[in-house]
Computed example of a mutant assay.
Amino acid sequence: MKLFENTNTPTNLMDVVDTPENGPIKGYVHSVESFGAVDGPGIRFTAFLQGCRMRCQYCHNPDTWNIGVGDEMTADQVLDDAERYKAFWGDTGGITCSGGESLVQIDFLLDLFTKAKARGISTCLDTSGNPFTRDQPWFGKFEQLMAVTDISLVDIKHINSAEHKKLTGFGNENILDMIQYMSSHNCDMWIRHVLVPERTDYDNYLTELGDYIKTLHNVQKVEVLPYHTLGVKKYHELGIAYPLEGIEPPTPDRIKNAEKLLHTADYTGYKTWKPGK
């Protein structure tokens, strides 16, 4: 595989999941964080899975893009590692799968979350939704995954599909379809939006996004994530041109403006949320 190859052209998602005929399913793990405080409710053990097809201009983890590389681990290996920190989770913490894009490895993710629930561990999916499709067999696996997912952190990159494609390389129609599925099936979720000057920080788009979120059910929290430049060094080290060179993080006033237009103060369910599945 070429290093950081261009994968903007959609391909069959089923060709990248690990479904061996014999033996346990193995996932490709980029890294783990033992005490994640920003990866869902409570303190969480976060597994960052390898692989993502989108090329978000502000991505700060380009080292997670390539598919089919990383540390091979089984679900039980991840959970055995995670349970060493269970005493710190309380009644809201647990495990989170992030990325990269977790849904690229849906077979492993389903195996992991199913076994986590059997162990009494709360599960959280951190996703941007790009792999979502209603084509089978993928969609059936997604439905099973939602049944063992307590809450999802959904990153809406841009509400406008044309602008979403400029920003990430893909449109957002299937992503919004995934969110509608979650809403109509009462799946708890947090909505996240990265505020990027000259890309997403426009009042008309923020207002449209805020109005859209208002139509959804079971949104426990809405977060504005200010763009930062902490990942620039990785691009330089990997020899990749950084797409947002020269763009500075948003000012405090623009962050407050975005929070107002997205009505973040209206979503307070996260304060009392408990895993219910």
Rank of each mutant, 00 (worst) to 15 (best):
G210S: 07
T96Q: 07
L225P: 02
G210V: 04
G246Y: 07
M189S: 11
G51I: 15
C124A: 13
L13M: 12
G276T: 15
T207D: 09
L209M: 11
G276N: 14
G169N: 08
G231F: 02
W138R: 10
F35D: 06
T229Q: 14
D188Y: 09
C52P: 11
D91E: 15
R199Q: 14
I255Y: 04
D126N: 04
D155P: 02
G276P: 00
K86W: 06
L109V: 06
G239A: 05
W273D: 09
A258P: 12
D91P: 11
Y28M: 13
I121E: 07
S183N: 03
K117I: 06
L153H: 00
T11H: 12
G23K: 06
P275F: 02
D177R: 07
G169M: 01
T133N: 03
N22H: 12
F108A: 06
P10G: 05
R84P: 01
G129R: 01
Y28I: 08
N174V: 02
P62L: 03
V224P: 06
E101S: 10
T92N: 08
R192Q: 10
I151F: 00
N130W: 01
T272Q: 05
I175F: 07
S102A: 15
E198N: 10
I25C: 03
T123I: 10
G70W: 09
L125S: 10
N257I: 01
D135Y: 07
I43T: 13
N130K: 09
N8R: 14
L125E: 12
G239D: 05
M14W: 02
T133Y: 02
I67C: 04
H30T: 04
I43F: 01
L209F: 02
R119T: 04
L230S: 06
Y85H: 15
F113C: 12
N186M: 12
R53I: 14
G27F: 10
T133F: 05
D266V: 10
E72D: 00
R199H: 05
Q144W: 08
G269T: 04
